[in-house]
Amino acid sequence: MQAAHGRGPAVATGIKRVHPDSVVFTYQGDGDLASIGMAEIVHAASRGENFTVIFINNAVFGMTQGQMAPTTLIGQKTTTSPRGRTAAEAGWPIRICELLDTLEGPAYIAREALTTPPRIRSAKKSIRRAFEAQLAGEGFGIVELLSTCPTWWGMDPLEAIRHIDDTMVEHYPLRVFRDRPAAHDRPAGQQEEAGSDA
């Protein structure tokens, strides 16, 4: 099912509310999720919608030929920041996981990087865990995957991987931000358990 640019979480909400027993996920880029679709992702997360979001963060609008994204790093050159992104002109890169981590709704939030074999294995674990959360009815899960865009970064694939590990992770720390049943699933009258920051 193809959603309009940015509207995946709203469309997924519609599908999940009709078929609550189906496994539902969205697959969204950083332009899609963090730019035009910011409202949809925040509200789906806030509602604790019981689906999974796979968020591909390559710090650029790849499909449309390499424009600046909300996640583009300061100083990064793109086709619409030809002299490098400056905070004065375009603000700072947005950290989606940290932002969603302020909400009660999400059950699982993690950021991983698709770079070296150990990191890819870790990413697979997080993705599995996010889907398990959905299957257990725990609520909204999102896995942000730092990914390369060799074409629009002007790097070869290996350089691009190194760029993520050397530079991007500084701004986007790899972390499981939350791994717990959604707040509204707590038995009433009990204290909320602290999120386990693995």
Binding site: T116, P117, P150
Partner: peptide, 9 residues
């Protein structure tokens, strides 16, 4: 021909 497999094998 991205060469990642060659690099990591």
């Amino acid at each position: 021909q991205c060469m990642l497999c060659v690099e990591f094998c």
